[in-house]
Computed example of a mutant assay.
Amino acid sequence: MTVRKLQQKRGWAWNIAVPLLKPLLLGVASRTWIDGEKLPATGGCIVVFNHLSHVDPLLSAHFVYDHGRLPRYLAKSGLFKNKALGGFLSAAGQIPVERLTRSAVGAYDAAVAAVNAGECVVVYPEGTLTRDPHLWPMTGKSGAARIALATGCPVIPVGQWGPQDLLPPYGRPDFLPRKHVTMKAGDPVDLSDLLALEHTHAVVQQATDRIMAALTGLVEEIRGEQAPAERFDARAAGVSLIGNPNKKPKKERP
Rank of each mutant, 00 (worst) to 15 (best):
168 P>I: 06
45 C>N: 14
23 P>K: 06
14 W>A: 03
253 R>K: 11
125 P>L: 13
33 W>D: 04
5 K>P: 10
92 A>I: 08
239 V>W: 02
16 I>Y: 03
41 A>R: 13
116 N>A: 08
6 L>G: 04
210 R>P: 09
213 A>V: 08
74 L>E: 08
15 N>M: 09
66 D>Y: 06
215 L>E: 00
25 L>A: 11
168 P>H: 02
67 H>M: 09
1 M>P: 09
211 I>F: 00
204 V>P: 09
21 L>G: 00
67 H>C: 04
174 D>R: 15
212 M>F: 02
247 K>R: 12
86 G>A: 03
176 L>Y: 03
139 T>R: 15
251 K>H: 06
162 G>Y: 05
134 H>V: 07
191 L>M: 08
107 A>E: 15
55 V>F: 13
110 A>D: 14
77 S>A: 14
63 F>P: 04
107 A>P: 14
61 A>G: 12
131 R>V: 10
135 L>I: 05
80 F>W: 01
97 V>S: 09
42 T>H: 13
4 R>F: 00
74 L>D: 07
16 I>W: 02
147 I>N: 03
143 G>Y: 11
108 Y>R: 06
64 V>Y: 10
141 K>S: 00
104 A>S: 15
46 I>L: 15
234 A>M: 11
160 Q>F: 03
170 Y>K: 01
159 G>T: 01
137 P>G: 04
225 E>K: 08
225 E>L: 09
5 K>Y: 11
